[in-house]
Nucleic acid binder design. Structure first.
Lengths: 195, 195, 195, 195
DNA sequence: TATGAATGAGCATTCATTCAT
DNA sequence: CATGAATGAATGCTCATTCAT
């Protein structure tokens, strides 16, 4: 049932993801959904949890397997893009919810996903790299946000370009952020002159 | 009236931006909106045009004023982030529309805004820089997408952190993409080893 | 303007014959219609009058030109069918109004057109024919109603069969009602046995 | 619910037969109608089917019970008028739908009811009578149309004259079409002279 | 004379939810 | 455990009408 909700969200969009449509896809009655989930909000929350846990289970170990900060960053990007490319539907669903769902007061409640809390591990990773002397001196939060934005954009990119070479895209992204983060001598004048 | 539509979209979200809510904010009747705009779709289209033109008028000249590719890229980022930080509401509205509106068949029709066509000038800018020997050898499209994603994320970031130091954020972003794009010697081994 | 109302009614139907559509066809503003006609009801009334007078001006003399009752009846049918076939649009408009317009209380107010009052001349014609011994002994009202129904159906018939041979159709109709009304000996037993 | 739709159509007319009005008469909510009927069009279709089937069930056997063509024609008229006089409301509803409903392109889609297809059995009946030598030589289609028009007009007639003597009216109609169709000698000169 | 602006009422339809079974 | 029935609220939209100009 959660699976059908995901499919509906991904293929029809948030606005069309009514209980009726989800129920139709799941070939159950609308009432059944309300039986298992106290409200639509609850259903969406479960969708988020399900998708999020699935991603974490795949990505977490991939990062942990690496030891150096730069290797971890590469693994972070690679694992995310890879997972996204293999779970496009779920990611689209997540995006639909994250961009539309609001709390009663009106503001994006699931900012927690793409937002600050979810960003913390990445920020920590970057700071560790800086302390270890692997990364140059940047604002870890800004870089983290940029990386997350690049990663989160992957699903849309793949939707629009289904035959995109994911491997090539991943490598380019990794290289890009390698250059952007790794300590080097050549570019330092730029960095300093801008400070 | 378009202004109120923008405010409603930005503060209440796409789903809550009904004609009734927009009309209420504008202190006119629902019918009046339908008098000036033949449909809701038309209203949203006008919102997009209005916001888009305003941004282009500000940003375009700022980029053109620069001559070198790397200076242009810096101007691109700076002008965008600056404009976004000063027109947060409009940008949020644009995002709400771009991410939710669908054509009759169901898929993102306004991808044109954040999507491919809008990307072309940036891609060209990057390629010019590569041909001029200013930029290293990267996939211009991947880098362009990443830059756009970083820029487009600014509005959400500012919503969540209203007292963010925009100047600092912009400088960090510019530096990040300087490192990511400019030709240097130090990091070349990374790039090559990954190829 | 009345002409455009007629066209709109005939081609788009009563439900679609809004002031907006009529105004569009007439290439004037909606307000102009309300300026010349105090209400939509008034406009429709004028349409009815216009069409009705046009028909009367054509048909009246054609009937009066005949002297015998049976000749008059033939002229009645012939003139009507002929006029209808040449003014299909107007007739369709009349039908749309007659079948849909209602007074405030809810009942067909324009029954006067196809209804009783409009029937009186025909009833009188038939009775004169009976008194003159030309027509058999029938209920003039029933026959009159039947003749009117046949005539009124002509427009629909022509809409559905645009290449109908109107001359043939008219002759068949005239013959049919000749048989139905003229005094004869052969069928009298039927009539009597049914009384 | 279909019953209330019929009543509303008959008493208030097609234009006033909104879901709101029908729901009010049925003392249910508008939503309930949409629950049972996927659209208003569907509701009207069911009304047509219901009424049509009811009529067919009554009228069909009455005609089949007769053997001769002229007897069948009499039964055809008698059964129709009788049924109509006893189901005035339903017939009015049917008329409102048939005369107003339009397909997306704009023209009368339910012509099938009063229109050509529904006419075929009557045309066949008349032709059989002609081949059997019972009926004179007329255009069966024209006569059929005229008979249907007379029958279809009955409901309007009864609405306008609730205390009409239906028996008398039926007999007059039957006699009229007896004279109009049966082979006789007296009138033949008319027919021939017109040919 | 003619029209743009504005609106309240009404339309068919969709939705999440409740309730009895 | 599951669902059919039912509904109030809300949606985008059309309409005839009014009013100031």
């Amino acid at each position: 049932m959660i699976g059908c909700a995901i499919e509906t969200l991904a293929t029809e969009g948030y606005a069309q993801a009514s209980l009726a449509h989800i129920a139709q896809r799941a070939e159950v009655s609308k009432s059944s959904i309300n039986y298992y989930f106290s409200s639509k909000e609850e259903l969406l929350k479960q969708v988020v949890i399900e998708v999020y846990n699935g991603a974490a289970a795949y990505i977490g170990p991939r990062i942990s397997a690496q030891s150096g900060a730069s290797e971890r960053l590469r693994a972070y990007i690679e694992a995310h893009v890879e997972y996204i490319s293999q779970h496009l539907t779920e990611m689209m669903a997540l995006a639909e919810i994250g961009l539309n769902a609001r709390t009663a007061d009106g503001k994006p409640p699931l900012a927690s996903l793409t937002g600050e809390p979810a960003l913390d591990p990445l920020i920590r990773l970057l700071r560790v790299g800086q302390e270890a002397g692997e990364f140059r001196d940047f604002d870890a939060r800004v870089v983290a946000i940029t990386i997350r934005r690049a990663i989160d954009g992957t699903s849309r990119l793949l939707i629009g370009n289904p035959d995109l070479d994911v491997g090539h895209y991943t490598r380019e992204l990794v290289t890009l952020f390698d250059f952007a983060t790794l300590k080097g001598t050549t570019h330092d004048h730029l960095h300093l002159s801008r400070k």
